[in-house]
Each structure stands twice: as C-alpha cells, then as structure tokens.
Design a protein around this nucleic acid. Structure first.
Lengths: 202, 202
DNA sequence: GCGTTACGAGTCTGACCCGTATCGTATTGC
DNA sequence: GCAATACGATACGGGTCAGACTCGTAACGC
C-alpha cells in the first residue's frame, strides 16, 4: 500500500475502482486529527473513519493498520525545502535555520513534536523522520562546504557538529519551547551570528 | 496528594496509617514501566498496581488519577545537578553540556524523551519540565556570567541565546538521535569549543 | 476488645477500540 | 444485464481500561 502509484499502470482490474476522494479524505482526516492535538497512539481508526466520512472497511482495504496509514500520511506532510539563494553564506544559514520546523502545511508545526516522541519507539518512524530531515541536513552541509571553499569559514571545522550547532537551538525552541523567554523570531539570526563569531573574548 | 509531607506533622488520624512502602512501590513501578518503553498514555493504573503488587484502590486512595500520579513520579525522578568546579569556564561548560539528559537515575534517560512529547499537550507537564530544567539553565547562566566577568567571554554576548546554543545540539542528539553518525561521547567538548571559537575564518 | 482506617485482591459497569463481516447500494468492464 | 469490486453503515466478538465497589484481613489509638 505504500506506493499506490503502482496501481496507475496496472492492467486495470475489474469492478468498481477505488475512490481517490476516499484516499484523500482519509489522509486529510488523519493529519487533521493529529494537528488538533491527538497523540499518535491515541489516534484510532474509528475516529479517522468518522472524520473522513468513510467506513472502517474502506481504510482497512487500503492499509494494513494504523502504522501503515500513519507512515503514508506523514510522508504526505513534508513540505517544500527552503532554497538558499547562494549569495551570502550567512544569509543562507539564517534562511535554513529559520526554516527548521516550518513547512507549507501549517499542520506540520503541530504534528512534528508528537513525531519526536515516536522516534524512540518505532524503527519505521525513526526512518521516516530521518528521511524528512536528511535532505535538509544535506542542504545545510552544502552551504557550509561552500563557505569553507570560499574561505568565509575556517577549513578545520567539523561540518557535522556545526550543523548540530545551528539546528539544535532552533529545534529545542520550536519543539520543546525550551526557554519560554527566548525570542523565536530573532533566534535564527542570533544563532547564526553567534556560531559564526564565537563567544570567546579576543 | 502532591505534598505528602504534610501528613507528617498532622494531628495523627485514627486507624491504620498508610503504608510508606506502598507509596514507594507505586512510584517505582510507574518509573519502571516508563523506563521499559511504555508511553505515558499507554501507562494504565491497572498495570502500575499489578507491577507494584498493590490494589488499584490503594493508588486511587492517594492520587486523583494517572496525571497526578505521573506528576509525583516524575518529580521524584530528577537527579542531582552537576556541580561545575569553577576553575575553567570551558571545562565547566563541557561538564554542564555533558550532563544534559544525564541523571543519577538510569531510568531518566529512557523517560525523558517521552516527557518531551507531553510538554506540548499538558500545561502541568510543561511546568514540570520547566521546573526540572530551569535550575540547570541557571547553573549554566552563572558560568557564562562568570566568564564575562573574568573577561574570558565577550561582554556583548546574549547569555540566553548562548545557553540555547550550548544545550540545543546535545539535546537533539540525546532525545531525537538527530544525526545517528554524530559521536555523542565527544559532542560536549566539540560543541563548547566550537561555540567558544566560532566558525568564521579569520 | 473496639472503632477506624488501610491493605491486597478481586468484581462489576460502562467506555472505547480493533479487525472482520455483512448489509444494501454504486460504479466499472464486458 | 451481469460479474466483480467498490462504497458507507452497522453489527459483531474480543480485548483493555477507568473507577467504584466488595471481600476478608491487618494495623493503629484508645
């Protein structure tokens, strides 16, 4: 069920075809319920069916269970990647850091934190999470490498650690509200500048 | 039930006194089950009672429900604070960063991530979380202020942002396994040094 | 010994949910 | 029209759990 695209060029099976509207409605209902504050495990097939205006059987006909459905639904959620302009390394980093936890779909913001907890329980969801963030990591890695090549950044920095340095503060603030007094708006710029300059007196 | 200490100097009520061993057993069972991988909401009073070798009524006699019990149990969990030596600002920061997510109670490590998700759902648990981390933030703030006073750190840095800078990378790695390729052992030192020196070429 | 309260263990009702099955109906190819 | 498959709705048996309750027993002050 993971790749429903394969049905497109199938030899056409007899009988009434599956409703695409039902597909959409089920996925949307799942994401809506999650965004409204339901936990992943508090989410029930029955609630999804009711919300989607769909019979339970219609869901079970498409997915093996809640996990499979969730995986598909969350896959649908990941928004577009922020595209660094490529002029200034600093500005590109500010853009990427600011994009952490932000997506085109406003529901993503609410859903991400509850994904965070699932990461430690299920290998599938850990993989899903890694699939979402690894292209974003790659983007940042390229900007940092470019900075090194251009001589803007030191050549001896550990790129992977630097990425964690840039991402961590933003992520704990967005996901955990780590420090309620911190200005989330200004944080990307401040983080990037602090990491660039360091804090040691000189 | 939050402050059971108040019973100590009460005018002594008649009848059999409540068993302190039962108190302990219930709390311990709760923490054990959480550490074994149970989610907060998958945790049931029945399971706790069974694990503690206690009747369900014994639990309900003490706490209003699962939330109240959880709050008490998690309160019990927070370990001792790491104590910076006060010699070198860098070493103190490495110590504090390394202590993130580490506690005397080995169960804490398993339980913390699942607390993370709860933070966004319940105000109580958000408060609890803040109560746990704010003394640790204070500790780090003092070290940073000392560094500024001693002239080791620049005077114009934003202390709150700097704390997020130091804490974030370690936290996302420990709680979310943000980057599986990152060496968690070496991370505290690397983070502190990178934040101290900055990454800009000069 | 007596009243009081707590204890572990268990029972009971009412939720909620899963996953399957079965309705009558709708939509497709042949 | 007919077989095949889909649809929404609903019912089912089986499961877990919350809370309140009931046992017979145990521990306290008086």
């Amino acid at each position: 069920m993971s790749d429903m695209m394969s049905t497109a060029d199938a030899p056409r099976s007899p009988g009434r075809p599956r409703s695409i509207r039902a597909d959409e409605a089920i996925i949307e209902a799942t994401l809506d319920l999650l965004a409204e504050g339901s936990t992943i495990e508090a989410l029930s097939i029955e609630a999804i069916a009711a919300r989607a205006g769909v019979g339970k059987a219609t869901i079970y006909r498409r997915w093996a269970g809640k996990d499979a459905l969730l995986l598909d639904a969350l896959r649908r959620l990941k928004g577009v990647l922020a595209q660094p302009a490529g002029h200034s390394v600093r500005d590109d980093l500010v853009l990427l850091v600011g994009a952490i936890g932000k997506n085109v779909d406003p529901r993503a913001e609410k859903i991400m934190p509850c994904l965070a907890s699932a990461v430690n329980r299920s290998t599938d969801q850990f993989q899903l999470y890694q699939n979402i963030i690894s292209p974003r990591r790659k983007l940042m890695r390229e900007v940092l490498r470019r900075g090194i090549d251009e001589g803007v950044l030191r050549a001896d920095i550990d790129v992977e650690v630097t990425m964690a340095l840039l991402t961590g503060p933003m992520l704990i603030q967005r996901v955990l509200q780590w420090n309620p007094d911190l200005d989330e708006q200004a944080l990307p710029e401040r983080v990037v500048d602090a990491v660039l300059e360091g804090i040691r007196a000189r």
